[in-house]
Amino acid sequence: MSTSIQNISLSGRKKEVSNKEMTFMESLYLVAIVKGLMITIKHFFRKKVTIHYPEQTREMSPVYRGRHMLKRDEQGRENCTACGLCALSCPAEAITMKAAERKKGEEHLYREEKYAEIYEINMLRCIFCGLCEEACPKDAIYLTVSKELVPANYDREDFIFGKDKLVMPLEMAIANSKSVN
């Protein structure tokens, strides 16, 4: 069997182009138009593929990297110790933080003696590469948990996310600890 390169069709949909003269019926375009109309009307009644975004969200893959989340442990304490490795690993230099020492009576808030008093990520700089997540020795920062996009905004200042937006909500930590138990 001789299969020359011209006859190979990997997709199985190969069609020869022909430039033959149109017959009279074809030159009226009517048949072609009716055919086209039938195709479009089929689409009219087809199920729509649109996802109504703020109300519905697309199902994300398990490794989808959305906006960051600073995790809490099962008792609701922040994991982050402000070691600065995430900021160091960040290729876009989007992360900045200020460390503080844990005082007496704050043991239920922070897991270790040192914590991040200020933790800011500039979402306009961030490239969502996930290197901060890889660098973190305390399992504190994750991009794969929130499954959220950074929402649009009017001012550049509004894209600098502080701890108020980054830290995992307490309810979520409680829910997590319940599922563990």
Binding site: T40, H43, R46, K48, V49, T50, H52
Partner: peptide, 13 residues
């Protein structure tokens, strides 16, 4: 709306 429906979208809503 018609344009959207013919293109499998939902149009202005």
């Amino acid at each position: 709306k018609v344009a959207a429906f013919l293109q499998d979208r939902v149009g202005p809503n």
